[in-house]
Amino acid sequence: MSALVSVRNLTRIFDVSKPWLNRLIERLPRALLKAVHDVSFEIEEKTIYGLVGESGSGKSTIGKMIVGLLPPTDGSVEVGGVNLFTEADPARVAKTRSDIQMIFQDPYASLNPRWRVRAIIEEPVTVLGGDTGGLAERLLEQVGLSASDAGKYPHEFSGGQRQRICVARALASKPKLLVCDEPTSALDVSVQAQVLNLMSDLQEELGLTYLLISHDLTVVQHMATKVGVLYLGRLVEEAPREDLFTSPKHPYTRMLLEAAPRLDGFGRQVDPPRGEIPDPINPPSGCAFHPRCPLAVDRCKSEPPQMRDIGQTRVACHMA
């Protein structure tokens, strides 16, 4: 199998400083937020790569850089061998762009309320001047809605149905890669089940590759082939699903798995995790997780751990 997406040493820094006059008067330094820090991973063709992390871990920023919505500060993203930001041939850029589509979290915010469903679904094809005859109707049926829905407006649909419309739109340009940023976080469990089932069916039918970004470990555990865990913009562990959920190597992954509520956790007495996610503008020295880590030693405070291979797992921890 070959890699469809390869992310190399990806870094993104946001300037979150106050305006220059405030800085001058209040004598503040420039504030730089390293949202993504030296992240590398590959996504094999026709697999689902799950990216998990808590808020501020940089998972959405990585998603945006992969689809080309945000330029990286450093490092590169290649999708099908093309780097969208450096590729000189406009035809290859256009081709690659239509190979990548995105599904967003909030189906209420990501559909234009003034457009009919047909126009929404056909847009990725119309912008490239493609043929849209019967396309919307066919896609609507593929995602489990009816062809007659094409003439309706988004407000006529429930949350789950809207997310199906988002999926139909994402499929319109026959993409290879779907970047799904929290696709079911805004939905109820029973509706979430419908959308997740639809996503797995389509993946098998059409041979799609997904990057599934989620804070919900259960969704990732259900869907993903391989999982990457982010903490404060750094990839701390990456492993095939079974390995990650049965024998997590990084103490942060263990903490996350332990903290997640379990359906059979009746009266479970857990030691809740220590501390909170630190300020990303001034992250801790060395390993960013050391202030909360039960295994931390002096070395963790000074030396940032490098990614190491342990079996199928890649982990960035001195103690693993």
Binding site: S158, G160, V189, S190, V191, Q192, A193, Q194, L196, N197, S200, T218, V219, Q221, H222, M223, R262, L263
Partner: peptide, 21 residues
């Protein structure tokens, strides 16, 4: 509801769906 949560469906390929809303 229980069968449609991914936690309960561990190991199964498909989640149970409750039809409709």
């Amino acid at each position: 509801l229980m069968a449609s949560t991914p936690l309960a469906a561990q190991g199964h390929h498909r989640l149970n769906q409750i039809p409709g809303t």
